[in-house]
């Protein structure tokens, strides 16, 4: 009942869409019906796109690329953000560099990254790295600088060293913002990935590549089924990060739920 109240609008649109398609208001080669898309989804897994290259392998390769790019971004961006947040002189030195690089869309890096790394995993990982890196580093800095100085002073009077201040005050204090950065970074990484795969993959697998193949052989229901998979996977990944956030930031439970 509660589910229905929350989801009735998307459901109604889906029903109307199916109805209009059944009445042949839209030509099926432009807008396939929801049922046709569902059939396309089943077909993507059963037969593959192109035939033989099945959906779960496309998904696996896409997730692998994101995992590599995102993990390396997080491993560098979080410590760097902590460092820049803790030291204002270092921040003054590095910030202009970040501000200069940040507005360049990750996708604009594709040509140069292909030149550097060739087409393949390193190049895709690099693009995703760039997409995820900046939101994580910037949110971590914000998190650190928003920690109340009184907490740092309290830790100092309790005998904390500078190292301990970073580890036991700045890091936990910045954690809510770090998670915001991770979520944004992962979202951008996922979006960047699909676009990067449009331009080509070496392995022959990837959701973006799968969709482009479906376009080449004029299969709109497979294209849209691919879009559905991308959307649902993005939703699922974000849900997992939120779950992790609720576990690691339990003192912020109420606020984490709103986000």
């Amino acid at each position: 009942m509660k589910m229905l109240r929350r989801w009735w609008l998307p459901l109604a649109i889906l029903l109307a869409w199916q109805g209009l398609c059944s009445l042949e208001v839209f030509p099926p080669y432009k807008l396939p019906s929801p049922l046709a898309i569902l059939a396309g989804l089943v077909d993507l897994e059963a037969r593959g796109m192109p035939p033989g290259q099945r959906l779960h392998w496309h998904l696996f390769y896409s997730l692998l690329r994101v995992a590599i790019g995102f993990t390396s971004a997080a491993l560098i961006a979080v410590p760097l953000g902590l460092l820049l947040g803790a030291s204002s002189s270092l921040r003054r030195l590095i910030s202009p560099l970040i501000e200069l690089l940040r507005p360049v869309p990750p996708l604009a890096w594709i040509p140069i990254s292909i030149l550097w790394f060739g087409i393949g995993l390193p190049s895709a990982g690099f693009i995703i790295f760039l997409g995820a890196f900046f939101p994580i580093v910037l949110n971590t800095i914000t998190g650190v600088t928003s920690v109340s100085p009184v907490l740092v002073e309290a830790a100092l009077t309790l005998g904390a060293s500078r190292r301990e201040v970073v580890k036991k005050v700045l890091l936990p204090g910045a954690l809510p913002n770090i998670f915001t950065g991770l979520r944004i970074g992962l979202g951008i990484g996922w979006m960047t990935l699909v676009a990067a795969e449009f331009t080509g993959v070496k392995s022959g697998y990837g959701l973006g590549y799968m969709i482009m193949t479906a376009r080449d052989i004029q299969r709109p229901e497979a294209i849209m089924a691919g879009m559905v998979v991308i959307g649902l996977t993005g939703l699922l990944i974000d849900g997992l990060v939120r779950l992790l956030q609720r576990r690691l930031v339990p003192w912020q439970r109420s606020r984490a739920n709103d986000a």
């Binding site: 009184v150 907490l151 309290a154 100092l156 005998g159 005050v169 936990p172 204090g173 954690l175 003192w251």
Partner: peptide, 18 residues
């Protein structure tokens, strides 16, 4: 510099929220 020999209690408690 701050030292464990001297304790300070703040007006705003200054407890670690986490």
């Amino acid at each position: 510099g701050p030292s464990r020999r001297v304790g300070l209690v703040f007006q705003q408690y200054a407890l670690m929220p986490w």
